[in-house]
């Protein structure tokens, strides 16, 4: 049991514009550091005077304790975070949430499927699997984006291709795009899915998650081998504000990463 503390100050040491409306913030503790984050966990990130938003960690640098958060400007707080410059300070609380269960993926093929900004919480998974290749089977990374310009981590995707199957598809081809056009489920036919020994990790808009999980199940993957990262309103991160409920789940404690077998019936209930 830990006490809910005020945020700790973290200094922005670098900003990387990823797309027209998303920025990766590299953060180092200004004084004391938060406990270690695991892939899939999130922090409550405080923009001074504006507010806090839950943002999954998109890279964890253990050497110096740096955390990277990729923020998409969708509201007042995330907009303020996207405007930060190196040297600025934010408040950080965490780590919160379950994180991806990579222990259960040991010995299995890992299939990462991301839609849009959903690649951010999955990037630490790719890093971890690439760091420990002998612990896992094959790594597949399937990414859907609106256009090629909306793709996150374009340089890294190229680098991952040397040790993983990386497939990218866009909803709308823009001039110069020579790759796949269509939804991310279309990439499943292109990946060599060994349904009997694959662990799939999904993050993206809920419609994309449901559609992709169903497509995986249709291809023989059991629902309990599918982990999904879900999103609801969160105010505290500590299970006290009551906002992030999805039926029996308090997503800030029981999620954001949950097993699809358990969450599928909940996602099927409208306005739950």
């Amino acid at each position: 049991m830990s006490r809910v503390m005020p945020p700790l100050p973290y200094r922005v040491t670098a900003t990387h514009p990823e797309t027209a409306d998303a920025v990766s913030l590299e953060l180092l503790p200004a004084a004391a550091a938060l406990p270690r984050f695991r892939p899939g966990q999130f922090a409550m990130v405080y923009a001074f005077g504006v507010g806090e938003v839950p943002i999954s960690v998109s890279a964890i640098r253990h050497q110096d304790g740096a955390l990277v958060h990729t923020v998409r400007a969708v509201g007042a707080v995330s907009g303020a975070l996207c405007r930060l410059r190196p040297g600025d300070v934010v408040g950080l609380r965490g780590p919160y949430g379950t994180g991806w269960d990579l222990d259960s993926a040991a010995g299995a093929d890992v299939l990462v499927i991301a839609g849009g900004i959903g690649l951010a919480p999955l990037r630490p998974v790719v890093h971890q699997v690439l760091d420990r290749p002998r612990r896992y089977g094959r790594l597949g990374v399937l990414v859907g984006a609106r256009t090629a310009e909306d793709l996150l981590y374009r340089d890294e995707l190229r680098h991952w291709r040397t040790s993983a199957q990386v497939e990218v598809t866009v909803d709308r081809p823009t001039p110069g795009w020579q790759g796949t056009v269509g939804v991310v489920t279309g990439l499943l036919d292109r990946s060599e899915l060994r349904a009997e020994n694959t662990c799939a990790l999904l993050c993206g808009p809920e419609v994309m998650i449901r559609h992709t999980a169903q497509a995986l199940i249709a291809r023989g993957l059991p629902a309990h081998r599918i982990q999904v990262s879900l999103e609801r309103n969160m105010r505290c991160g500590t299970g006290h504000c009551g906002h992030c409920q999805l039926g029996p789940l308090l997503l800030c404690l029981d999620g954001p990463v949950v097993d699809y077998a358990g969450s599928q019936p909940l996602l099927a209930v409208r306005e739950l």
Binding site: A20, V74, G75
Partner: peptide, 14 residues
């Protein structure tokens, strides 16, 4: 599903 334009820039007000 593509018609939904799921990854479109947000039109929210938060």
């Amino acid at each position: 599903i593509r018609l939904l334009d799921l990854y479109a820039p947000s039109t929210g007000v938060s």
